[in-house]
Design a protein around this nucleic acid. Structure first.
Lengths: 183, 183
DNA sequence: CACTGATCTGACCGATCGGTCAGCCTCTGA
DNA sequence: TCAGAGGCTGACCGATCGGTCAGATCAGTG
């Protein structure tokens, strides 16, 4: 029961990731995390300012990669190049961080309100725009949103599929499904 | 404030639908619904046994259609026919009930535990199977799940798109993206 | 030895949740 | 006129939430 090791911080992070993935962010209480770690709820709040700080630290690496993808897309010369970079970059991100994305478990709408994800809303809008080949046509935007949301929502469920196989399948799907932008 | 009309039942349903769509099922309290209606929380619980009963009544029509779609898919002679019926039926269901689906807002995982959705889990598994053309290949199942989840997750966001246009765009996407089953 | 700072605990707080309950209105029909 | 039923209210309940706080424990330092 008594913990004297200073590695509790990491243990809390790992336990929180497991619980968030199992029951979602809102569905996981600080007591749940504490029980999984084997410490008190107060100990959890000794290592993290509040519940949100745990989520922030868990998501930080994925958010950083998403931000850099956003920049790389903006640098592309035309819509076709932007679409290709967006597709490849997003698939790579989804596969690499699928466990982190999984623990959001459809709570995107509420979680987007939180400071951690302050800029994600705009980034994802630009991502959809790139997916749609900068087209304003309704069908292009519908296609883009369905694919983006579908991948984000499901990639965490393929924990048993090897990275390369999942990556290939998703990229093939995107190339097949996305409407080609006008030249 | 005082309500003497017996139409409160319907008003509560409508208010609940709006609040669920805005902040999700778990994110909406009985007090929120009562405030929107303009009555007391106790009045809401006079008309409905509990919070879940409101959701049950809201979702009943959509669930019934999903159940009949499941039966129709099972009657198809081969995987190709089943895939086509599943695609057309699911798009139709998603478009017609997009406002009902929208108010689940990614809370599928938790809500699936509730009695209302007891059989939905198995039905959706059979739906994915039909989407995948009864193939066991990982890529086919990944594609099926991404598209199904993507449509379910996003169709509620296209409230401004006419039914026919949305339906056409989604069906075209499915025909383009789904892997063809072996003959 | 005394002291300090880091780590951790149990008890507690106010807020909010879904849900219950006794009773108050208002309308209706015998 | 009045009993009773339907509709509704305010007060209240136990549970749970995120978060606070005073203090206990312990390793290291002088």
């Amino acid at each position: 029961m008594a913990r004297t090791t200073p590695q509790t911080h990491g243990e809390i992070l790992a336990a929180a990731a497991r619980r968030f993935a199992a029951t979602g962010y809102r569905g996981t209480s600080l007591q749940d995390i504490a029980t999984e770690v084997g410490c008190s709820k107060a100990a959890v709040l000794y290592h993290f300012a509040n519940k949100e700080a745990i989520l922030t630290e868990l998501m930080a690496p994925a958010i950083e990669v998403l931000r850099s993808l956003d920049e790389r897309i903006a640098e592309q010369p035309g819509p076709a190049a932007a679409q290709r970079v967006a597709a490849e970059g997003f698939v790579d991100l989804a596969v690499r961080f699928r466990s982190e994305i999984a623990l959001l478990r459809g709570e995107f709408p509420e979680l987007l309100q939180q400071p951690v994800f302050a800029h994600i809303q705009q980034i994802s809008e630009r991502l959809i725009d790139a997916f749609a080949g900068h087209s304003a046509r309704a069908s292009a935007r519908i296609t883009a949103l369905v694919l983006l949301a579908g991948i984000a929502e499901t990639c965490g469920q393929f924990a048993d599929v090897p990275d390369q196989e999942l990556s290939d399948a998703l990229l093939a799907l995107l190339l097949r499904a996305l409407e080609q932008p006008a030249h």
